[in-house]
Structures are given as C-alpha cells and as structure tokens.
Amino acid sequence: MELLVASGIGVLTAAGVYLVMRRRTFPVVIGLSLLSYAVNLFLFATGRLAIDRPPIVGATANPVDPLPQALVLTAIVISFGMTALIVVLSLRGFLETGSDRVDISASDRDSSLGSPPPEGAS
C-alpha cells in the first residue's frame, strides 16, 4: 500500500509540474489541481497508512492520528476556493484579450498604468 500511495502522489506531482509549465491557461489550471490533489494525499499519508482504524478515540483500541485529516480538510477547502478563483481569472483574461496565453506580451508590458480610468466608475 505504501508503494501504491507513494507512486500515486509522485505521478500526480510530476503530471502537475509538467502541466503548470505549459503556455496556455487551461493546462496550468489542471496542473494546479493535480498538484493540490497530490499534496492532499500526501498530508493524509502523514498520519500513517492504516486500515480499519478510524480516527475516533474509543471506537478502536488503537485509533490513527485525526489531525492530518483536519489539515487535509482545510487544505481542500482552500485549494477549492483558489481553483474557482483562477478559473474565473483565466476566463476573464480570455474574454478581455481574446487569447488564453499565460505569458505577457511586450505590448501589454508597455501600457503600464494604462489610460486614466473614468472618475467615479464602479
């Protein structure tokens, strides 16, 4: 089981790292999700891998550590929110610029603060 979990985390991380380095937003978003799955599994495994030992004191003679599961829960909530944010961000970027490239072109960089925005716009 250790080998299976470890190689699963490894494959997820490797695939995530590869996708994060792609040039378009969609693979990057998928890559970030894969990375967060990998880290969630990893955190879960830090409480030691055991079968039939629920993390409840009194339910079994030798319960596993419940803390990593609480950490994983927090990490899942945060990564879920972040993924939603970055999906919206890449969609808005695609709709406003017409391109889903991650890099910033030279003409984008020159514009600096851009033209002065209208006063009092909401």
């Binding site: 994060v20 937003t25 990057v28 970030l32 990375l35 967060s36 990998a38 880290v39 990893f42 955190l43 495994a45 830090t46 990593p68 950490l71 990490a75 945060i78 990564s79 972040m82 944010l85 970055i86 961000l89 890449s90 808005r92 970027g93 406003e96 610029t97 991650v102 910033i104 984008d108 960089r109 514009s111 851009g114």
Partner: peptide
C-alpha cells in the same frame, strides 16, 4: 483591465504553487 488580468493569473498561479510546497513542508 486586460494587463492586470494577465499579470494576476501569473501571480495567483505562482502563489498556488507556493501554497502546495508549503503544505508539503508542513506535512513533512
């Protein structure tokens, strides 16, 4: 603004990778 969105995507992506590494460190 378009430029802000592009730069924002990079900023969020970099920091999400940072968060993942932080969690690996915390786990270890």
């Amino acid at each position: 603004g378009a430029r802000r969105l592009k730069a924002g995507f990079q900023y969020v992506a970099v920091n999400l990778i940072g968060s993942v590494v932080f969690l690996f460190a915390v786990g270890l």
